[in-house]
Structures are given as C-alpha cells and as structure tokens.
Design a binder for these strands. Structure first.
Lengths: 223, 223
DNA sequence: TAGCTAACGTACTAGTTCGTACATTAGACA
DNA sequence: TGTCTAATGTACGAACTAGTACGTTAGCTA
C-alpha cells in the first residue's frame, strides 16, 4: 500500500518528470483519501493537492475518479494476495497450521486498516468496481488453496472432526479479523471497548485461534 | 425501520398536514437513501423527491443533512435494541440459550441489511454521529445482559469450560453475522460464493452456533 | 367563524466539484 | 544539437448540491 517516497536512489538523480513515480504518488494519496472519506466523500482536488503533481495528471493517467478508485482497489488487493503467497505453514501439523494461518490473517487486517476501509466502501457500492475490473476478477486467493490442503490433511489424520468447506472457514476467520477493525468505532462507542486496543491484541489473537481450532476439533458437532 | 404508509386508519380521514407522518416518511426514505449511497453519496434532493413533502421540510424538522443522518441512526439502533428486549432464552439450558441467541442475532442481521449498511457507513465516519448523539450514548444493550447471565450459569454448571467475557462473545457472534451481510458483495465477487444465498442460510446459521458452542465447551483451550 | 400558528411549497443562491481546453516543456533519441 | 512526444501546468466551465428567504394555508382553538 505504500510504495512511497523513493528518495532518489544514489546515482539516479531525481528527474523532474517520471511517469511511474507520479502514478505511484497519485495512487498512494488516493488510497488514503478514498479510505478516509469513502468514494463520494473523497475529493479529486484534495488528492491532487496532496501530490507533487496536479489534477490534470490524475485524468491523464487514470481517466477519472471512478477508474482511479478501481485502480486503488486493484493495488490494495494485489498487496494482500502477495502477502498470502508468503504463507509458509505446510510444514506444520494441521492444528498449528490453521492457528498460524488465522494469526497471519489477524495480523494483516490489523496492519492494513486502509485496506479494510476500502473494502467496506466497495461493499457499500455493491462491488461494482471489482465487477468492472478484469484484474480483480481472476486474482484468486493463495490462502484458500492453503486452507484446502490443511483441511484435507487434518481430516485424513483424524485431527479435525468437523467437515468444513475451505471458503466457509476463510469467511469465519476473515469475519472476526475484519469486524474487529471495520467496526472498531461503532463498537467502541456503543460498548465502551476498543477492539483494536494494543493491550488486548494478544488476547483477541488467541481467542480467534481458540475459536477456529475448537470448531474444527469439536467432538461430533451437530449434523 | 419501516413505520411507513399508515393508510389512514378507518374513521381517521387522512389529513393533508400531519407532522408525525411527514417526519416518519422522511426518516423512512432517508434510511433507504443513506443506506443505498452512503452519507456523502446520499442526496437531500433525492430524499425529498421520494417523499410526499419537500426539501424544506427536511430542514424544518431535522435541521440539516448531518442531523438527519444521526436521527436515522438513532432510530435504526432503537429498533434493534427493542428486538433484543424480546429475547426470551433464560428458561433454556446455557448451551441451548447461547445457540438461540446466536440464531436470533443471525436472523436480525439478515433481516436488516439497511441497518448493516448504515453501521458500515457510520464506521467509515469513525462513529462521529453516534458520539454526537445523546440518545445513542446511553442506549445500552439488553443482549449483553442476557449473555452475561447465560455465561455465568454455564460456567457455574460446568457446561462452559472457556472463561470468556460477555462483550467479547458478543463481538464474536456479531462479527460473523455482520460480515456475512456487510461483505456479501466483495466476498461474492472474489470467491464466487453468495454468503446470503437463501439456500445456504440454514447452513451458515448452524455453522455459527456450532462455532460458538465449540468455543465455549472446548476441553481446556490454551490459557 | 375568526384568528393564529404550525406546517408547508416555491424559487433561488452561494459554493463546490468533476472534468477539460489549451498551452508548455523535459528529456529521449536520431 | 535539433526534433518530437510523453509528461506536465493553468485556467476555466458546466453541473450539481446543501441550504435559505419569502410567501402561503390547513386546521386547531376560542
């Protein structure tokens, strides 16, 4: 999400015109602005003002506000998918692997509140931008493949007693991680508890893992 | 959320001027419009147009767009709190009671997608309207009290092995119910699965209950 | 039934906001 | 070193949008 501020690598004197840098700078600022204010709340002029370039360039490179937002989304999703690719849990036993996966998901959500906000905003708009994006249509999810393999192994070994679909488990894990960040403000205002309080971080991280493992290893759930 | 369209109770001829009805009508339409487009995306003119009255009246009764949104939120939360008051699970054993509570929460989220959207929107705005509202500050949560009592009983009887805080359990249940509705569109677009597909409703409802019960009755989780 | 006021409608304005027409120049390359 | 184009800046316009000034009237009450 932050490709920002390459301070002119040595030997490479900062050029006045640099298409790639200008585009990256616009995307960085746009990400912040859209995440801050929502699609309609975001101001193209404001984005331009916080850039070293002008509004003209936003239209030159991205075409318009709508496409800019789509590109921001594309980049945000690409970042998270790349992080998922790093996932290295196959050497762990199924229980540890799932817990680790949950923790990595937990950490990623916490570390990218802007991404969470963008996704919330995109949902208000019924995912129209994702639908319109070719890139996002076929981006896939490495995490899902990992979950699938772990679940299979866990079931074969008899460690997991619950027969759950990978997508559903992903939804279960994501929902907790996402909600904790996305609904932080209303939840805090209504129940007087900050779900993202650093002092409670380990607590909630453990709670998530416990919950998922308990579900997967429950002795004969209802079915 | 829908006080709408009282079609002139018999004997009570529809008056041309009716303050209460006008206000309710504005609130109904405003709820839809804000939920549809977000705070900044919503148009005061559009709200007025879909009402039998005019924009003038919105300002007459509510003061402005900001206060109108706050009032919409207040009413939406009041509705959900009233639903929680109906909650009648104390006669059930702790396991059944928690499962029932989870199911009621699940049902309520499904039945009020507009409410979910409003809450998402309010979170984008960092709960500023809730913070500014006296009414919402001290609205409380009947559900929390219920959870507290069930948990206590469950622990005393030895049925629940996990020592969890009522607010945290509420967060756990809510996160799943909320995410399923709030992130329906992005999740569907990315994973090709509609979390709110009626055919899957019972499946997810059971899954939530299983998860919560598994967590509460797990044999000595990590602690 | 006369008077009064809460309830209402119309028409307008000031300010904002996305988008673009037009002009300019850095710097790659021949 | 001259040329050409991608990259850039300035200034402006058309459309929208929250909010209001001013005038009107339904219907309650005395």
């Amino acid at each position: 999400m932050t490709s920002v501020e390459e301070p002119a690598r040595p030997g490479e004197r900062e050029r006045v015109r640099d298409a790639a840098r200008t585009q990256a700078e616009i995307l960085d600022v746009a990400t912040q602005e859209f995440a801050r204010a929502g699609y309609d709340g975001a101001r193209v002029d404001e984005i331009a003002a916080r850039t070293r370039t002008t509004k003209r360039m936003i239209y030159y490179y991205f075409g318009g506000k709508e496409q800019l937002f789509t590109t921001v989304l594309e980049r945000a999703y690409t970042v998270i998918r790349e992080a998922e690719q790093e996932l290295d849990v196959e050497h762990l036993d199924p229980v540890a692997a799932i817990r680790r996966l949950a923790e990595v998901t937990f950490d990623h959500h916490e570390q990218h509140p802007d991404f969470i906000r963008l996704v919330s905003i995109e949902n208000i708009h019924e995912a129209h931008h994702i639908a319109a994006s070719e890139k996002l249509g076929r981006i896939g999810s490495p995490a899902l493949d990992v979950i699938r393999r772990i679940l299979e192994e866990g079931r074969r070994s008899g460690l997991f007693t619950t027969d759950v679909d990978a997508v559903d488990l992903h939804a279960m894990i994501s929902s907790f991680c996402f909600f904790r960040v996305s609904n932080r403000h209303t939840f805090g205002a209504l129940f007087g508890r900050d779900l993202v309080d650093p002092a409670q971080r380990a607590h909630y991280r453990t709670m998530l893992g416990d919950m998922v493992i308990a579900y997967l290893t429950a002795e004969r759930a209802s079915d």
